[in-house]
């Protein structure tokens, strides 16, 4: 294997660090082969004579655009239609009935985070279209985001090879939702129009995308480093509407983390955003404890409050017209 590697050994570690810093993703062991295969194609596309030249330019000039393209190429995921079919069924059986009931008449906003070459958002749209009878009047739109790459360009074009459309896609769906274009197949405009693909740095603030009733991020969390996982989950949670859902992949359980989401019973990879309860202020002038409270501190505050109460009680009693208090 090492004979096939073309870069100086230090560059592999540097690229691994760059990916971790820029995208929070750890490429893991044996990343040399991934780097060679993914980046050699990118080097040709970018007009370099070989991979070494592109990497020297990257680290020599510190070009942001090139860095983003390199990291995007390294992060590109192989995806297929109806991948993780069970969690797609969970969306249909558990999530959509609730959202349809709660938000009748509203256009449901769905986010496909890390959409790669688009099979996930298209699969969601096809699943909804096939089950429209179950959700009369349902209106929806899908925002699909990922790093700028060849993959998301392909998603935007909705053009797939003969091999792509035969993995995970039933033949009935192929003839219903695709048109043949020579050797390839293209998603029909009626379905494509449901989805807006946007180049997006996945670790940046998501609030510019607005709020969503449903956020889908399946089978991607494990790739991130622990701090990046927290950051990603916090961002995703921030764009889930109140009582909306975050759907992870089957087997991905983050119930030990508290981001204001609760796991749905029986399907822990589906999380629902809690309802915001705004408490009315009891006393607008009351001091809010800022640090850690101790039992001693609580006891002092309780005693002070009790003495305050006994001082004010006669007046309150007379106002209420009561003659005695216990």
């Amino acid at each position: 294997m090492s004979a096939a590697l073309s870069l100086k050994p230090s560059y592999y570690e540097a690229l691994k660090r760059l990916t971790l810093e820029l995208a929070g993703v750890n490429l893991g062991g044996n990343h040399e082969f991934l780097i060679e295969t993914r980046l050699s194609a990118l080097a040709r596309q970018e007009g370099y004579d070989n991979l070494q030249m592109m990497i020297e330019e990257l680290f020599g000039s510190g070009q942001t655009r090139l860095a983003v393209h390199v990291v995007s190429a390294l992060l590109e995921r192989d995806s297929q239609f109806n991948d993780d079919a069970e969690s797609l069924e969970d969306i249909l059986n558990t999530v959509l009935p609730v959202l349809h009931r709660l938000y009748k008449g509203t256009t449901l906003r769905i986010l496909s985070y890390g959409c790669s070459s688009g099979q996930e958002p298209y699969s969601i749209a096809m699943a909804i279209e096939k089950n429209k009878d179950l959700f009369p009047g349902l209106k929806y739109e899908i925002a699909a985001v990922d790093y700028p790459s060849v993959a998301i360009d392909r998603a935007r074009a909705g053009r797939y090879t003969h091999f792509d459309v035969q993995r995970g896609l039933p033949i009935t769906d192929l003839i219903r939702f695709f048109d043949r274009a020579g050797e390839d197949w293209i998603i029909k405009d009626s379905l494509k129009d449901r989805i807006v693909f946007t180049d997006f740095h996945l670790l940046s603030k998501l609030d510019v995308l607005g709020e969503f009733h449903l956020v889908v991020f399946r089978k991607g969390l494990a790739r991130y480093s622990a701090p990046a996982q927290i950051r990603v989950l916090r961002e995703l949670t921030s764009v889930v509407r109140e009582l909306g859902f975050l759907v992870l992949g089957r087997g991905e359980d983050v119930s030990n983390l508290n981001f204001g989401l609760d796991g749905v019973e029986g399907v822990p990879h589906i999380l629902r955003k809690r309802e915001m309860i705004i408490e009315e202020p009891i006393d607008p002038n009351a001091k809010v404890p800022s640090g850690r409270t101790t039992f001693e501190g609580a006891k002092r505050r309780f005693n002070r409050a009790r003495s305050d109460l006994s001082e004010t009680r006669p007046e309150q009693v007379s106002q209420e017209g009561k003659t005695s208090v216990a």
Binding site: Q80, H162, F163, Q166, R167, G168, P170, I171, T172, L174, I175, R180
Partner: peptide, 27 residues
Amino acid sequence: VTKITEALEAGADEYVMKPFDSDIIES
């Protein structure tokens, strides 16, 4: 598409377009 439709109407359950590989057959 007309041929595929004809096959489905005749009672085919699925349809593989050649060339194929093991992933396609499995799927």
